[in-house]
């Protein structure tokens, strides 16, 4: 029984709609948010920008240490998307779509700025580096520090591709489907295999001895 004092002209009720700006989008599916953006809804654009810009910057910086190149790429991507409003394709996973797009944009800009012929992301061994978080504790270990050093050692043996997939899966919380699309695999199971094999090679480092 929700009694609304709005019907009473004397009461000082203020419609709560005015305060629920961004919250409106939090509850919506990616599809709906994208459609709203495509229709020109400025709040949808605000939501996209504030939700993803930091993540795009972190991800994009894996390709280039040139912060202005990464910033420009993000800027160009959003300008492009805004200009295409009305004609944008349906998107079901916004983060995956934006990651794919920013990756393409940044690689394009790196190629334009450098003399390196045939820039390939696999060249970039220094990129997508992983560190074992010092904040997380492994309960079972007798020597926690030793355990983390071991895991760190294991991680450093992974290929750039494997590290990228691991970061996208755990840190960025993307699905195998999204990872496959970002990494240009034609099949989802290729992403699944890539991560599974990385885990298998980490097994001796991450498995406590009892199992």
């Amino acid at each position: 029984m929700n009694r609304n004092p709005k019907e009473q002209p004397n009461s000082t009720f203020i419609p709560s709609k005015h305060f629920e700006t961004v919250k409106v989008f939090e509850e919506k599916s990616d599809c709906d948010i994208w459609n709203a953006f495509n229709k020109g809804d400025e709040m949808a654009f605000n939501y996209l920008y504030r939700t993803y810009v930091q993540e795009l910057y972190q991800f994009g910086s894996q390709y280039s240490r040139d912060s202005s190149l990464v910033k420009d790429s993000i800027q160009n991507l959003f300008i492009y998307l805004r200009k295409k409003r009305g004609d944008l394709k349906e998107v079901t996973n916004i983060k995956g779509y934006l990651f794919r797009s920013i990756q393409r944009e940044i690689i394009k800009n790196i190629k334009a700025n450098t003399s390196i012929e045939g820039f390939e992301e696999s060249f970039l061994d220094s990129h997508f580096q992983i560190v074992v978080s010092p904040e997380v504790s492994f309960i079972k270990s007798e020597s926690e520090t030793e355990r983390k050093i071991q895991l760190q050692r294991g991680l450093s043996q992974l290929t750039t591709k494997q590290r990228k997939a691991i970061l996208l899966f755990y840190e960025e919380e993307l699905s195998y489907k999204e990872i496959a699309e970002i990494m240009n695999f034609s099949e989802v199971k290729t992403a699944r295999k890539l991560i599974y094999r990385a885990l298998a090679s980490l097994k001796e480092f991450i498995k406590p001895t009892s199992y």
């Binding site: 910057y57 972190q58 997508f128 560190v131 895991l151 840190e171 991450i206």
Partner: peptide, 17 residues
């Protein structure tokens, strides 16, 4: 333990916008 592993993975460098 598996949950600890998942949480322990993070980017080595943080790039703050």
């Amino acid at each position: 333990e598996a949950a600890s592993f998942v949480r322990s993975i993070q980017y080595k460098e943080n790039f703050e916008f």
